[in-house]
Structure formats: structure tokens, C-alpha cells
Write a protein that binds this DNA or RNA. Structure first.
Lengths: 128, 128
DNA sequence: TACTATATAGTAATGATTACTATTAATGAG
DNA sequence: CTCATTAATAGTAATCATTACTATATAGTA
């Protein structure tokens, strides 16, 4: 979990704890507000830096939605359903879509390492 | 092609012409630099506004890559291959992936209207 | 040609993200 | 445990892509 020369700080622990306890795909600002409850003096820059590093290390996922980044501690294969009305993001698991995609890419032309699948539409709450 | 109350200006014509003539998925800045060749006094704001409106009207597609927007006049079903090294974006056509995805979503839970599939990896040039 | 609303150029404002720096503290060795 | 090393932090400034604003110009239409 911890990579070489990486130090475990209370800030990192709280950030990852919060991310693992939610499926709301929060922004950096969301994470900041929440971790602030237990570490009031935490800096927004610390949150950004750690989220960026965690994403680069593959400890979390970073998504791009509506011109901003969202973070997700769920590393399992799943795709994202983005509501065009309220902007909420929900998950869809248990699909073989990534195998399907991988088969389609020709390794001679492009070496696939990962994929991001986003479906846009209207969520359950908003269609009422 | 032109929606109600929409006016066709030389700026719009050049923007859409450029987009239709490239598969490089340019940024707004790229479009601006190029259209500037034929309309030197064009404003960057004009490019942004038009790209945004065209995307909203469904005349072009807007992609999100590496924290920025890219534009694509190709409206056919295709997915995007993003190279992690050079950042280039190429297309992959002729896949039934969107049908596949649509079947997986439950209309009772989420009404799917569109999808964006991005594969990350290493492109042909960079793997050498 | 004249009218009206849309579009434009130019510029200012916004806001998310990143960079910077002096200080703090996590880790490992002795 | 104590110390030394250096990654990490808080706080703040800087960046930069995108959006907002406004007076002027112009496309479309009668």
C-alpha cells in the first residue's frame, strides 16, 4: 500500500479513509471539507498533492467530469453513470466491458493499459 | 445543421471547417491558432463560445482529457485511445461497444443518452 | 434600406489546480 | 530513546484554462 520512501501521515490516513467510505466520487474540495472536520488545520494544497500522488501511484482513481477531477477509492472494474441534470455519479459493477474493450484493441497499434467508461443520461431521482 | 435563431458567421464556418478537416481532437487554443490564419482578428472568446454552443447543440463532441477540453466533429460512434506518453488521441471505429453498454444499463435505474469510452495506454509511435 | 436580435472583439473576472517556501514531523539508524 | 535525514505540511502566491461582460458590428429578414 505504501510505496518506497513514502511516509504515512495523519492527513493521508484521513483522506484515504474518507474516500474508502464514500461512493459519491468527491472533488478535491469535497475531500478537503470533510477531512477538515478531524484535522481543522489541514491545507487544501495538502489534499490536492496527496490525491494527485495517490492517483499516480494507482492507489485511487481520478475521473474527469464536467471540467473537473473526481476521486474514487474503488479500484474494481466498474463504469460511471453521470446524470446530466444533477451531476451525480453512480457506479455500475459486474460488467465485462473492459474485457470486451481489451479484445477490440490491436496491441500492434496501441498497448491498452486502462480504460474509463462514462455513460451520460438521467438518473433515477431526476427522471421523476 | 443550423438551429433556430442561430446565425451563420464566417467565424463559425472556419471553426467547423477546421474541425471537420482534422482527427487530432484539438483544444480550443488549437482551434483559435488555426482559424486565426484566415480570420486574424478572431477573438479567443469567440472560439470558446462557439465550441461550447456547438457541443451543446450536438453539432460536435466535447471530450475531457488531462484536465482540459478537446473537440471532435466526428459524430459517429467511436472511442478514443489516449497515449499516456505523448498525449495524442486517436480514434477506434467500427465497434459495437455502445450497443453493448446500452444493453447493460437498466432504464429503470438510469436513462442512458450517450457514452464516452477512453482507453489509456501507449501509442504506436511511443512504444518504439 | 432599415430593423432587430445575435454574434463579435477585446478585456476583465473567475476558479480550479499547481507551485513555492519556511517549518514540521515520520522514519530509520545508532 | 535520541538524533539526523528528508518527505510532508500549512499557508500563500502564481498559473492558466475557461467564462463573463460590454460596447460595437453584422446576419437575417421584411
Amino acid at each position: 500500500m505504501i510505496t518506497i520512501n513514502e511516509r504515512l501521515t495523519p492527513q493521508k490516513i484521513k483522506i484515504i479513509e474518507f474516500l474508502k467510505g464514500t461512493t459519491s466520487h468527491p472533488t478535491a474540495e469535497d475531500v478537503y471539507k470533510n477531512v477538515k472536520k478531524s484535522i481543522p488545520c489541514i491545507s487544501l494544497g495538502t489534499v490536492y498533492r496527496n490525491l494527485g500522488q495517490m492517483a499516480q501511484r494507482g492507489q485511487i482513481r481520478r475521473l474527469e467530469v464536467e471540467g473537473g477531477f473526481r476521486y474514487d477509492a474503488d479500484l474494481s472494474s466498474h463504469l460511471h453513470l453521470v446524470c446530466k441534470k444533477c451531476g451525480s455519479i453512480s457506479d455500475m459493477h459486474d460488467v465485462r466491458i473492459f474485457d470486451f474493450i481489451k479484445k477490440k484493441t490491436n496491441p500492434g497499434k496501441f498497448i491498452a493499459q486502462g480504460a474509463e467508461v462514462t455513460i451520460f443520461g438521467i438518473c433515477k431521482n431526476c427522471k421523476k
